[in-house]
Simulated assay, not measured.
Amino acid sequence: MGALDGKVAIITGAGSGIGRASALRFAAEGAKLVIGDKSAAVHETAQMVKDAGGEAIAMEIDAGVEADVAAMVATAKESFGGLDVAFANAGIIGDMGGIFDFDPAAWAETLRVNLIGPALMVKHAGKAMVDQGRGGAIVLTASVAGINSGAGPGAYSASKAGVINLAKVAAQQLTGSGVRVNAICPGLTETGMTKPTFDYARAKEVTHKLGQLNPLKRAAQPEELANVALFLASDQASYVNGQAIAVDGGLTSSHPVTRQLLGQTSH
C-alpha cells in the first residue's frame, strides 16, 4: 500500500526541482496527478510519471492566475473524480532590489505568484475538498527566507513569510472540515530557481561551500523536500495542521554564532 493510494493530487511548479521530485514521489505512492507549470517541461514530468507506471495530466498554467488554478482543480475532479491533496509549490525569486531601490511593480509580481498563487490554491482546492466532505491536505511551499532575514531578497522573503501565515490562517478557517493546511520551508535546495548559484559554485570549484551555514554543511536535493511534502500530504500527518516545517539542515535552529569545534569549551 502506498501512502497516497486512491488519492488525487494537484502539484504546481512541477516542471522541475521540488515540484518534479514531488510528482514522481506522489505517483510512486499511488496518487493520480494533475500537474502544472508555466514551463513546457511539465509535460516531461508527466511522461516521467507515466514511464514509471503512474497517472498524470500535465497543464501549462500560471499559478498566480485564478482561472488557471480553478482549471487544475476542475480537471482533477473531472478526470479522476475528486481531489484529496493540493501542493502549491510554484514560485519565483522575483525582485532583487533592496529596501530603498525596489520596483513596486516587480514586488507585486513576486507577491502575485508566491503568495496569491498559494492563496488561490487554498480557495479552489480547499473548497473542492470541503464540498466532498472527506477532508484533505493542502501543502504550501514557503522558505526559510520567510522565517528570518538573510536567506533571500526582500520581496521573496516577504512573500514567503506571507505563505507561512497563510497556512495558519487557512487551517483555522477550515476548522471542522478535516482539511489540513501546512507549509514546508526549504533551505538551500538545488532547483531551477537556484541553478545559477549551483552552476557558479561548480564553475569556481567551491561546491563545498554550498549550505555551509547549516549544521549538516550541505545543500538539499529536491527529493528530500518531496519526502516531507509527501508526509504532510499523507494520512501519516493526520494530526499536523497549521504548521510551517523547516527543511533546512538545521539552518534556522540557531541565531548566528561563532562556532566552536567539537570538544572545545569556553571559560
Rank of each mutant, 00 (worst) to 15 (best):
S238M: 09
Q47F: 08
F87L: 15
E66A: 15
G81R: 11
S39D: 14
G91M: 10
F231H: 05
A23I: 13
Q212Y: 14
T141L: 03
L140Q: 01
G178K: 06
G54I: 07
S177Y: 04
A71I: 09
L188K: 01
R218C: 08
V257F: 10
G192F: 03
V163R: 00
G126P: 05
G2P: 04
A233T: 04
Q172A: 14
M1W: 09
G192D: 14
D5W: 07
G54F: 07
T75G: 02
D95L: 07
A56V: 10
A151Y: 01
P256Q: 08
A161Y: 00
V240N: 03
L188W: 03
G36A: 14
V228S: 01
G91F: 06
A56M: 05
Y200G: 10
K123P: 04
V257E: 09
D131E: 15
G97K: 11
H43V: 11
L24V: 13
A170K: 04
K127I: 09
G97F: 06
E109S: 13
N227F: 02
H43E: 15
G192I: 06
T175Q: 12
M59W: 02
L262A: 15
V122Y: 00
G30N: 10
F102E: 08
Q236S: 14
A161W: 00
G53T: 08
G15W: 00
L210H: 03
A27R: 05
I138R: 02
G187L: 02
K50T: 14
Q260A: 14
A171Y: 01
A201C: 05
L261K: 13
R218I: 10
V240F: 02
H124S: 12
A3I: 11
S143P: 03
T258W: 13
S16M: 10
A170S: 11
P222N: 03
N182Y: 00
Q132L: 08
S266G: 13
A171G: 13
E223W: 00
G250K: 05
T175I: 12
S39I: 12
E190K: 12
L213E: 07
A40W: 03
I92T: 12
I11G: 00
G54Y: 04
V49S: 04
V228K: 01
R202E: 15
H208W: 13
A27T: 12
I147L: 03
L4K: 03
Q243T: 15
N165F: 09
R218E: 06
S22I: 06
D51R: 06
I99Y: 04
K38I: 15
A41I: 08
A119P: 02
V139Q: 01
G36V: 10
W107H: 10
L140P: 00
A167G: 12
A219H: 11
M121Q: 09
S238H: 11
S177E: 03
G36S: 09
